[in-house]
């Protein structure tokens, strides 16, 4: 099949992955302005409720493409 011509594509938004400093649970949410890797943020852990989390990664999940 011929590759389809691309129009103006949507720009994928990265996810911010946070790790709880208390229990070590990792969860993710959409990136928001001001986030950076290794930043400590005051956000509630969804598991234990502690309020300190650390950003451990910011990246775009890629969809699986067939080679």
């Amino acid at each position: 099949m011929l590759p389809r011509r691309r129009g103006v594509e949507e720009i994928p938004q990265p996810l911010t992955h946070l790790k709880c400093l208390e229990c070590g649970t990792v969860n993710s949410r959409p990136f928001t302005g001001g986030d950076y890797v290794f930043k400590e943020v005051e956000e509630r852990c969804p598991k234990c409720g502690a309020s300190k989390m650390k950003i451990i990664g910011i990246y775009v999940e890629e969809e699986r493409k067939t080679p």
Binding site: Q13, I58, Y59, V60, E62
Partner: peptide, 8 residues
Amino acid sequence: TPMKKSIA
């Protein structure tokens, strides 16, 4: 462009 998971 924004870092991909495989790169991270």
